[in-house]
């Protein structure tokens, strides 16, 4: 559905996107993950015809984004990073205009508007001016609007930015619901790692380079096993002990916790509890998160 080859974008001397290559299948949720300034929005803007690539080729739904812009535009819906609603208009007016821009047949408009408002739970606010909406409601309305013309591909550039955790959860719930019901291909960016986990596949981007593409599961598996966080009365001594006596993939000290990356946490913990000399004060076993993935690829924590 989306095919990107050798994509590059530079602003004057600055290289915002470096030789990107990836392919997104129909019906897939593809996550683009990276810290601020990684080049996520730049990529989305090129894919949605809003920006001209410096070089490389991009096709969406079989159409080239530089040669068949209007065909591409008809095929996609986009939720930009910044709000693009008209706040002086009501929700209904915003949606109606969108129907006209995209040539949604007149007879279907009313039903479609009700349908998308239903999906994002805004049916009751249909006649309210958008400036009276909360940030979360506005974001949901934007998502609804992006769906009005039944796009084949939906781009979501940080759809939950600036929302409280509860609303964020809601928005993702809607997005997953959509994927189940409509089989829309979705391309989303975020710098919240937990959110990227809903993707079927994730590309990790940093400084304009794609440094890894895989399923969240494989990415985490590449890290090898589980992470055991240990707190002891003397972390230095405990670390020496672990290093000499146990088989760990990686060992680091972070925020007063020893992070042990191990192949198999069950075997490790059962033997470790028996033999460790330094008194234990805390123990936690967790599966690696995408944060760990990002850390291991870039050597830095992702942060927002």
């Amino acid at each position: 559905m989306i095919d990107v080859q050798g994509l590059q974008k530079s602003y004057k001397d600055f290289q915002a996107v470096n030789n990107s290559n990836f392919h997104v299948e129909e019906g897939e949720i593809f996550g683009f993950l990276g810290p601020n300034g990684a080049g996520k929005s730049t990529t989305i803007n090129i894919l949605s015809t809003m920006l001209q690539p410096t070089s490389g080729s991009v096709t969406i739904n079989g159409y080239d984004v530089t040669k068949h812009q209007n065909r591409v535009r008809e095929s996609i819906g986009i939720i930009f990073q910044q709000n693009t609603l008209d706040e002086k208009l009501t929700a209904k007016e915003n949606l109606k205009l969108h129907c006209k821009f995209y040539g949604v047949p007149r007879s279907k408009r009313k039903a479609r508007i009700n349908e998308v408002l239903e999906i994002v739970d805004l049916t009751d606010s249909i006649n309210l001016l958008v400036e009276k909406f909360s940030g979360g409601m506005q974001r949901r309305l934007e998502i609804a609007r992006g769906l009005l013309h039944y796009p084949k591909v939906l781009f979501l550039d940080e759809p939950t930015v600036g929302l409280d955790p509860q609303t964020r959860a809601h928005v993702w719930e809607y997005i997953l619901k959509l994927k189940e019901n409509e089989n829309i291909t979705m391309f989303l960016t975020t710098h919240y790692l937990d959110e990227a986990e809903i993707s079927d596949r994730i590309a990790i981007m940093d400084h304009g380079d794609i440094i890894a593409i895989d399923t969240p599961r494989n990415l985490k598996q590449q890290l090898g096993g589980d992470i055991v966080e240990i707190k002891t009365t003397d972390n230095e001594a405990a670390m020496k002990e672990i290093e000499s006596d146990f088989d760990v993939v990686d060992l680091s000290l972070q925020d007063g916790f020893i992070n042990c990356k191990v192949e198999n946490s069950d075997a490790f913990v059962s033997s470790f509890i028996k033999t460790l000399q330094t008194p234990l004060t805390g123990l936690d076993i967790r599966k690696p998160t995408l944060n760990d993935v990002f850390l291991s690829f870039t050597g830095r924590e992702i942060r927002d």
Partner: peptide, 14 residues
């Protein structure tokens, strides 16, 4: 500046 132009420009309106 306030973004609505992008909603128009990204649409298939010539």
């Amino acid at each position: 500046d306030f973004g609505y132009m992008r909603e128009i420009l990204v649409s298939p309106v010539s």
